[in-house]
Design a protein around this nucleic acid. Structure first.
Lengths: 310, 310
DNA sequence: AATGGCAATATCTTTGAGGTATCGCCAAAT
DNA sequence: ATTTGGCGATACCTCAAAGATATTGCCATT
């Protein structure tokens, strides 16, 4: 049985007349008669009563037509749904990210993406850089925002683009002597109680701090450690010590906390966006497009991917 | 787009391989390639990724396939449903009947029909003979059980078959002097308080009573009237008078009520089954079949209708 | 560089969908 | 009673396209 048979049966039921139904279908009457006859033979039941007053469905015909109409609706919807999916209007995007990305690029990016693609289901997974990398390679994530480019087995099949630079800043209580200063020097940090990050991505941040503190990095041994930047800010605001963390901390201002630069300016690993090189899903492309609109200094790698949107 | 395209896409998704999918479909590989290509062109989106590891649906393909599978399910169900409807296994039967039919033939008939055709929706409408007739002609009923054959405009398009004979019997209280007698004579009814039916079908029953009572039918003028046979039996049992009604009353025995024949035996209009002559619905045929099994003395008219069950 | 597996392309065959002409049937009109 | 007209079915033909066979092109592996 073909969709044609369904369309013809539905048209015949609508017009209750072979000739007019055929005209409406753009064919002649004899082919319609034949197709309906073929259909009735295949179904094994008479579907229409041909009376002098018109052509009306039998009980079997009514049962058939109900299903036929639904089938035709599904067929029409199949094309529509496929088209929407192909344009990236529907679908799913699994995003892995480090917690601190929630401070700066993610809120704007997610808000804009949610507005532009309301029917795309966003799955957000906070995880470390290394887990993001593994999950990307395993196909369990579509994109990831990590601290520095992902490393490890299969990382060569990933495309990575820095989406923002970062450096170390300090946060102190507004009651602290350093409060009000635009910057503090490394010298001013020595022999002070420090608060630093201790998450899974600690090595990257700690490496930055070691560079910063140089010979005195032993001070880190006695530092207070916190799992995320919000805790660092909170502890610093309550006077526990001087918090050190990424400059994106400034996106989470808080009464009682004072942010200042640290001189010399010490870079931290870049925030990096990664995805599978062979992934050409339109939803991913749409997300990359949003990223580009939001992050002015993305690399040319994204442009390469966004150029041919076929 | 034709159902063929859907079947091919589903098969290709299942086998993830053009060659094997084609074999499973019973065609060669090149035609399958072409049909899928045609489909992708019509939908306007690539539905499958051809990789070295196999053929996998794209996001658009997944969306398409979900609809395609449902459409194919509907198409398969269309034939099944039509077949069941054609065999009278599903559908609807609207039955009009006079209240007293609930005493004798209907309980058995409905029980048996409900067991044999559990998926047929029975719509039961208690109504008078004349309303049944009108409703049958208007196509608002499929069958009717009436007192005597239906009359009136359009009745010539109906087929009517007597399904049981009937005559007048009496019902008295067990405390009544007549209780225990197998029969009472007309003479014994004279000058006794009588209870008779007064429903819309009264004329038919009253006509029978008038024949019965002959010259003394004026006694009917002072009779107690009741709307249905249950009330007649109840009133008689409580000693209000002698109830007169159809012999089918005996199907509703009741403590305190005594049924007896009336001599001479006086016929009442037959219980008649009617339906539209042009109605060949399989559900109706099934119902007529059940009627025939339950009512031994149905006429040959039903046999005519049940012989060619095509 | 050679081999092999797989999908795409080229070309031909054949099925069957659709067109035209006509028939048969029945109801309404004469 | 005969005729006319409308409608669906039948007969026959045509041609588009579904499908078969043979071959090519492209990688990935050897």
């Amino acid at each position: 049985m073909e969709a044609r048979h369904l369309r013809y049966a539905v048209a015949l039921a609508e017009h209750a007349h072979f000739g007019r139904a055929a005209t409406a279908l753009g064919i002649a009457q004899p082919p319609l008669s034949k197709q309906i006859a073929d259909l009735e033979r295949e179904v094994g039941a008479r579907l229409f009563d041909r009376t002098r007053q018109g052509v009306f469905p039998t009980a079997a015909g009514e049962a058939f037509l109900a299903r036929a109409r639904r089938a035709l609706d599904e067929i029409a919807a199949a094309s529509v749904d496929a088209g929407r999916a192909a344009r990236g209007e529907t679908g799913r995007l699994r995003l892995g990210f480090i917690a601190s990305a929630l401070l700066d690029p993610l809120p704007d990016v997610l808000r804009r993406f949610g507005r532009e693609r309301p029917d795309v289901r966003l799955e957000l997974h906070e995880m470390s850089t290394s887990r993001s990398s593994t999950a990307l390679v395993a196909g369990e994530l579509d994109v990831a925002i990590t601290l520095g480019p992902p490393r490890g087995a299969g990382a060569e099949h990933l495309v990575s683009v820095p989406i923002g630079h970062d450096h170390v800043i300090a946060v102190v209580s507004t009651a602290h002597p350093y409060a009000g200063q635009p910057a503090v020097s490394v010298d001013q940090l020595r022999r002070q109680p420090l608060i630093v990050s201790a998450g899974e991505d600690e090595p990257a941040v700690v490496a930055g701090l070691r560079i910063l503190l140089g010979a005195d990095s032993s001070a880190l041994g006695g530092a207070t450690v916190a799992r995320d930047v919000h805790t660092i800010i909170g502890l610093a605001a309550s006077g526990v010590g001087i918090g050190l963390g990424p400059s994106r901390m400034k996106a989470a201002p808080r009464p009682g906390a004072w942010f200042c630069e640290v001189t010399p300016r010490t870079p931290l690993p870049d925030l990096v966006l990664s995805f599978a090189a062979r992934d050409h899903s339109p939803v991913l492309s749409a997300f990359l497009d949003t990223i580009r609109k939001n992050c002015p200094d993305v690399g040319a790698a994204l442009d390469d991917r966004l150029r041919p949107p076929a």
